[in-house]
């Protein structure tokens, strides 16, 4: 079942995006994600276009990527509504029903698009970069910070990415078990919450224990880890970085042209 969960799953491939140096890829993605926070609509389209091209170039399962977005659907809707109602005065219909104004809806939609783009950027990174490559890159970066637990933190990040499919698998398993035993017939929300949370927590702890045992049996220890040398930067990595820098500059330029409302 975990195979069907594509979220934050590495998709083996040999595309242009797969072949970019993981360090460069990480910096580019971080750059775009930071940029998303303060870009407004005309400039945002440039980043959206660039992201679409990157996704197409990565040759990952695009359709499934969109399907995975469903998992964030509720979260995005809540943010959209909250933003829509809070950013401009809602219109009160018939003196009873508050409806967000066009301006509010626009602001909510703007945030929702940004969240979707953020999710796609992170999916693009994790689906084209192995967790072990990320671990090496992060380790090399963290070791430059004095007194920083580089090995531990880089491994935790990589293990978290690896464990996402397992956790989602357990989530699905517990949920289906509840449904198979007619949880729908009980209307008490607290009962729903507890009947899910307790077994799920137990499963997580059990899985974490199994994984820890398996790591221990395969000699995992921070002291033992010798990171493999990361691949050196090649010409195409510099070209990729330069192209992305151009896109970021263009987006920033357009952003500067737009008057502050």
């Amino acid at each position: 079942m975990a195979y069907n969960i594509m979220l934050y799953h590495y998709v083996p491939g040999n595309s242009v995006i797969h072949n970019i140096h993981p360090g460069i890829k990480l910096i580019i993605v971080l750059g775009f994600c930071i940029l998303l926070f303060f870009l407004r609509l005309p400039a945002l389209f440039i980043v959206l276009l660039a992201e679409t091209i990157f996704i197409l170039l990565s040759k990952t399962r695009i359709k499934q990527m969109f399907c995975e977005l469903r998992k964030f659907f509720l979260f995005i809707i809540i943010i959209l509504l909250f933003r829509a109602y809070s950013s401009a005065n809602p219109v009160i219909l018939l003196r009873i029903v508050p409806v967000p104004s066009i301006k509010g809806l626009f602001a909510g939609g703007h945030i929702a698009i940004k969240i979707c783009m953020l999710i796609f950027f992170s999916l693009l990174l994790t689906s084209t970069t192995k967790a072990s490559q990320l671990q090496d890159i992060l380790y090399n970066a963290f070791t430059k910070i004095p007194f920083f637990p580089a090995a531990r933190l880089s491994f935790i990040i990589s293990l978290t990415i690896i464990s996402i499919p397992i956790l989602l698998d357990k989530f699905q398993e517990v949920d289906e078990t509840r449904k198979a035993r007619c949880i729908q017939s009980n209307k008490n929300p607290f009962y729903h919450l507890f009947s899910f949370a307790l077994p799920f927590l137990f499963h997580i702890l059990k899985t974490a224990d199994d994984i820890a045992c398996s790591m221990e049996a395969r000699s995992y220890s921070e002291k033992n880890i010798l990171m493999t040398k990361t691949t050196p930067l090649r010409k195409k990595d510099f070209i990729s970085a330069a192209i992305c820098l151009l896109i970021i500059s263009a987006a920033l330029y357009i952003e500067c042209l737009v008057p502050v409302s």
Binding site: K130, S132, T207, S214, R218, S219, Y220, N224, I225, T228
Partner: peptide
């Protein structure tokens, strides 16, 4: 399933030797 510590088959087998 709880022994999978890599994102590809090759990566998973390499976990022990790396350690």
């Amino acid at each position: 399933d709880s022994q999978i510590l890599g994102q590809t088959v090759e990566d998973d087998v390499a976990f022990g030797p790396r350690n």
